[in-house]
Design a protein around this nucleic acid. Sequence first.
DNA 1: GTTCGAGTCGTACC
DNA 2: ACGGGTACGACTCGAAC
Length: 839
Amino acid sequence: MNLKFIPIDFSSFDYDGKNFIKLYGRDSKGLRVCVIDSFNPFIWAILDKKLKDSDIERIISKVSKITIDSSAGRISKVLNVEVHDKSFLGRNVKALKIFLSNYKDSQKFADNLNIKGIIKRREHDINTVHKYLLDKNITPLRWYDVSGKVLGDRDVPSSENLGGIASSLNVDLVFLAEEFSLVNDSSVKDSFAPKVLAIDIESDDLEIGKGKITMISLVSEGFEKVITWKSPASAKKLKFVESFSSEKSMLEEFVNIINKLSPDVITGFFSDSFDLPYIRSRSEKLGVSLGLSLDTSVNGLKFSGGKNRHVRIEGIPHVDIHRFIAVNYSQYLQSETLTLNEISSELLGEKKHDFVIRPSSKLTPDDWLEFFKYNLKDSVLTLKLFNKFLPDLLEFSRIMKKPLFEVSRDGMSTHVEDFIVSNLHRFNEIIEKRPIHEEISSRRGRDSYVGAFVLQPTPGLYEDLAVFDFTSYWPSIISSFNLSRSTILPKRSKDSLTVSIDKNKDYYFSKTKGFFPQLLEEIILLRKKFKTHLKNSPDDPIIKARSNAYKLLANAAYGYQGFFGARYYCPEASASTTAISRDFIKEVISKAEKFGLTPIYGDTDSIMFSLNKKPHKEALDFLTIINKSLPGIMELDLEDFYSRGLWVTTRGGELGAKKKYALMNNSGKLKIRGFETVRRDWCLLARELQNDILRMILSDGNHVRALAHTKEVIKKLKDGKVSLKEIIIKTQLKKSIKEYKSLGPHVVAAKLMVDAGLPVDPGALMEYFITQPELNSKGKPAKGSKRIGDRVALPNDSRPYDKDYYLNNQVLPAVENIFQVFNIKIDELIAGVSQKKLF
DNA sequence: GTTCGAGTCGTACC
DNA sequence: ACGGGTACGACTCGAAC
């Protein structure tokens, strides 16, 4: 029998001492299927090169006899041993492929391979499902033709029905696989629209499990519901609300609805850390069985991870969409806080339902209606966000060959590693091991290497600029110069390239292309290809997702090689990458000068020039000349032409500040980097003023209008007409309060919140403003009012803001070095208003 | 009691 | 534990005066 099948979630189990994989998914009719497959797990033992055939025979015979008697009463054996010619870190090796009866004991087998002649043991540290996917070359979320037979059928003899596993699986069909073949028909290849369920809870205490869950919203396509046990008479007015007699019966209905809807994916916003832990905690307290898993013998939710907890439901991937966005896209978003409201506003153009949560006891019947709508809207937004990122999630899962559950939580380095690992079979490579404790701590202790070159700008207002940048600069260097763990050489050779890090330090790399640089080149070229595709079909979400995925991979590849947790860690390659990057950018700068362009500023891979009245075409000619001289896949590109640009000095210094500039292109679009305008830890009053004057200066070419505007704002501040919203300062609490050595204003704010009984967790954004100091008899700040921190007030504080602080520590610092470019001093800014009157 | 500089901390750039 | 280094700048805190 044949089955058209798409695998969505995976899990492993063993029966009769052998490993099996459960692949949960759908068939072409939409039935929920669990395909069961067996596989022959193995690990590798790399042999000493000097071994004779007879030595190898002796080792094989020793290895074959290894048995593991695990504490669980399980006895695992070596089933077979094969000799293979393999590659390890680019070198040819002889290795034993050791097949095990049970992969659960792979680590113990590896420990027992401490045999003379075996120099390395590998691939025992890859988890069972991943090992299976790699070995069988199965990609999640792609359609397969599977041959096999239906389990649970009367025709299948009990000796073959794996202990009657079919009866414990909550699916339409259980299928025992024989063979998988990928469906290549392009019309069905990418066609999969999973049924997604979004959930969101409200509780009367934010601390997990402390309060009660007052309501839960569940939203899927064509389905909107809020279930609650708080049932004011008014609830009947809303069709989507269903009331229950108790929190317990509401939770039971939560399970019923999910089982009835049969979603392929469950999503939530921050649900790994809040909604699902809360649901579990309340269910345990109230004795509700969370029968959500598709394998009824695996009950409830599975929690893993310490600080960053993951909640797994077997068979139904749970995706915390907040986590996926935070890890992969936060650096590309404008949102300063990754809240549902802010991300939805930016990406969906939609906000949360307007309602301020208050304690249950203070809610009127009409308030409850708004609360129900609010709860429903949160799930609606979560579902929309999920759908927006669905193409990306699917592509990530396919490209990295990792289940949705994992890939939606993995960090960038894991993505890079998974991509590499899933392609190593093409290079006949044995996978390197992940570092363990001592190795990690020694790597973490290494000295840092020198990074990018940043050109010191000369402060001033410039006209007519061209900006060039290298496309995928660091990855293109890694690829073009073959910088990686498997290509670094201990010493110079005929076939080597020397990279000088500094006067005393050289590194050598082979000229024979290694797998890491090779795969990185493929990533860059794929990224380029899909980017071009995207220009022709800008609305194709799949092309967009692919382009995105390869872009993220390329950008993370450099960081990966310097990351202590990487299998293919190579800080020498990282140091060489940055050294080469410094050389090239400096060479472009000096060539440009000879060409008649004046370099103003540059950072890492970009360089900005004043055109000196030259036509744009000459800048493009310069690009062509440079590109002819670049090796490999390196490429310098035009970023844009700008009509004006502004650079300022550092605070209190003479030299130009790096990483801080403002540009306006020929169509009037602003590009502001590094200035207080773009920093969330400055108050809005200062940020908006600075943004306004930068726009004025860049469009006018002088400071006149900007100066007048600044004076108006200062007057507004002095007149006390500034709103609370404009003076709130937001700073993130990065660790727990007691870990701080220095008690800055935001730590003081956190303490005030704790005193007020509000929960404060690391990672939260503290919001506060600065009040006036208490004065002593001499009119000077009183003892306990010296530090800024002593004057911190939470937003609900009714005391007035400190005009002096906001003038001297926020507004003036944000504008003074901009006006300094035009030789305007601070006293001229505040001139025209008498100190006495205003303070 | 005031001044100063090293150290802590957060955020941004690429 | 879950890319990297470079850079700016506010604020604290204790030593030095």
